[in-house]
């Protein structure tokens, strides 16, 4: 398993889409902080971050879009493209159980996705603090808030990566993976909430899904109990979708 993870890590670190994604996110964060610094909200400016911690909070609110769009693209170019260029054949004929091959791919993809999910908020926090000052949260501990939201960002990113990775394994094709991920993640919330009018159980399902957890990422006050539930939702989603990935990949013929 170690060998497979090392090989996948080598691939990820040489994947241009991965580095481009990191670069674009970092650049977007720099632009966001500079706008906050120079675009006066009292004079028609749209961004009203006053400190590093403000920039961190606002970036967490934007992160769901980054996770939903960015991960679809990364899954398409990191996972699905292996079917197109034939390297998936190399992997399955190398003498390792398919379950380990796909578990290694999804693990490394999740780690890469977690890294990508941190770039935008972290650059916002660090650069925002340098330019605007660190700031403070009204009635709360900044350190506790940052650690909690950072940890939840990592967990949510891993869970979303497992789901998107599963799409990639299922669909075999970069274009289909990217397109389907976009459509799915942008409409699924609305579809579930609309359908829950007819099947109320769906609302409960939604409340205990990563689709809800990601929207609550930036909440400033979360009870310990709710936090534990959110952590469990993310971990179980990751395990479930890696497991589904293994089930699908074990039966899949490589063309």
């Amino acid at each position: 398993m170690n060998n497979l993870i090392r090989a996948e890590g080598y691939k990820l670190l040489r994947n241009r889409t991965f580095w481009l994604l990191l670069l674009v996110l970092a650049a977007a964060a720099v632009v966001n902080v500079l706008l906050a610094r120079f675009d006066d909200p009292n004079d028609g400016g749209a961004i009203d971050a006053l400190s590093g911690i403000d920039a961190w909070t606002s970036s967490l609110a934007a992160n769901p879009y980054i996770i939903k769009i960015g991960f679809g693209i990364l899954a398409g170019f990191f996972l699905s493209s292996e079917y197109a260029n034939g390297t998936m054949k190399r992997s399955v004929s190398a003498g390792f159980p398919r379950s380990r091959i796909i578990a290694a791919k999804l693990t490394v993809f999740s780690l890469g996705a977690m890294g990508a999910a941190l770039v935008y908020p972290l650059v916002n926090l660090v650069l925002g603090s340098l330019v605007l000052g660190f700031g403070e949260l009204p009635g709360g501990s900044e350190a506790e808030y940052i650690v909690r939201t950072l940890g939840m960002t990592l967990l949510v990113a891993a869970a979303f990566a497992a789901v998107t990775g599963w799409f990639a394994i299922l669909l075999n094709d970069s274009g289909k993976t990217i397109g389907f991920s976009f459509v799915f993640f942008f409409f699924i919330d609305g579809v579930i909430l609309m359908a829950s009018k007819y099947a109320p159980a769906l609302e409960t399902v939604y409340d205990y899904s990563i689709l809800r957890v990601i929207l609550d990422l930036a909440n400033e006050s979360v009870s310990r109990g709710d936090l534990l539930v959110d952590i469990a939702i993310c971990l179980l989603t990751w395990v479930a979708f890696v497991g589904l990935g293994i089930v699908v990949f074990r039966r899949k013929e490589i063309k």
Binding site: N3, G86, A94
Partner: peptide
């Protein structure tokens, strides 16, 4: 079956690590 964006050595290195 090759990674098009990688060099010959890098393609082989992936296989070496994997095995």
């Amino acid at each position: 079956a090759l990674f098009p964006q990688l060099t010959a050595k890098e393609n082989l290195e992936i296989h070496r690590l994997q095995r």
